[in-house]
Design a protein around this nucleic acid. Structure first.
Lengths: 146, 146
DNA sequence: CTCGTGGGTTGCGAAACCCAACTCACTTAT
DNA sequence: ATAAGTGAGTTGGGTTTCGCAACCCACGAG
């Protein structure tokens, strides 16, 4: 009867609103300041202001002061924010592969070895790298109710 | 000046609206019908109806008729939908790890070997499994403009 | 012939979104 | 010494979207 409790829903409470992930993308890309994020995302300024606040409150970003008088802060990733990288990469990759007219986007993340990073699925017990599509669905049968 | 073109934005156009990912979660979990998805997500019926439509239009879900008269369809994952698994797993894992009071959620995806699957980042050139947090950010310096 | 179920649609008030303009607090040009 | 520009928002307003409850239609069961 009640909605399923799920960490996905919890995650979406923090980063699931419109513009949140695009704002985070900019910070990942090294754009740390309000106007830059506005320009690169196209988000309305007021909406972005509240998004950044919830991201800070949610522990994903932290403000770093770079000027007293006038007081101005940059937005930087926390550890929690950094660890969103796999999920964001997964979405980017998916968009590239499956959404028509998505840009082939040259901007990607690089490993320290110089190679490009990719999001994948790994089996925690046998360590095997699972190709997308070989996921076994949980055996909930056709159960519909809660 | 213009917003950055990015496959992440394209992806979010398809699966970024409220309830979309939760609806997809249900389909992943084997709940294929409207009422089941409504019950398990808590989404308003009207919103869910339009979300399912955009997911179908976006090629993530497909309708599978299971009854003529009255005509009734189930929602099933397409290949594109299945390949959202890494991204969704990434978000679930992140929620579990970083969001307070997120359920420890026993429902996960399993590999054919019986182990639990996890989302990770892999280097495409050296093949190394990169621990979250070791991501090298693109060297955009402090560039702010477009 | 009424009840229940599945899959929606409709109406309407509340909330969120978007945009343009405005505010401070400075810094740099003229 | 004004004037114009930058950075980081806030404010006012109109427009969409959300969310909820109620309704509808087709059927099947009792």
């Amino acid at each position: 009867m009640n909605p399923r409790e799920c960490s996905l829903a919890s995650a979406l409470n923090v980063i699931g609103e419109k513009w949140s992930l695009l704002a985070l993308r900019e910070v990942f890309y090294g754009v740390h300041r309000f106007d830059g994020i506005v320009r690169n995302t196209g988000a309305p300024r007021d909406v972005l202001a509240t998004r950044l606040r919830t991201l800070v409150d949610g522990g994903v970003l932290r403000r770093v002061r770079y000027s007293e008088r006038p007081p101005r802060d940059e937005y930087h990733l926390t550890q929690a924010g950094l660890e969103l990288a796999p999920a964001m990469l997964g979405l980017m990759r998916w968009g590239m592969r499956w959404v028509e007219d998505a840009p082939v986007s040259a901007t990607v993340f690089t490993h320290s070895c110089g190679g490009q990073l990719d999001a994948g699925i790994v089996c925690t017990s046998c360590g095997e790298d699972v190709g997308s599509g070989e996921v076994e669905l949980p055996d909930t049968g056709t159960a519909q109710g809660s």
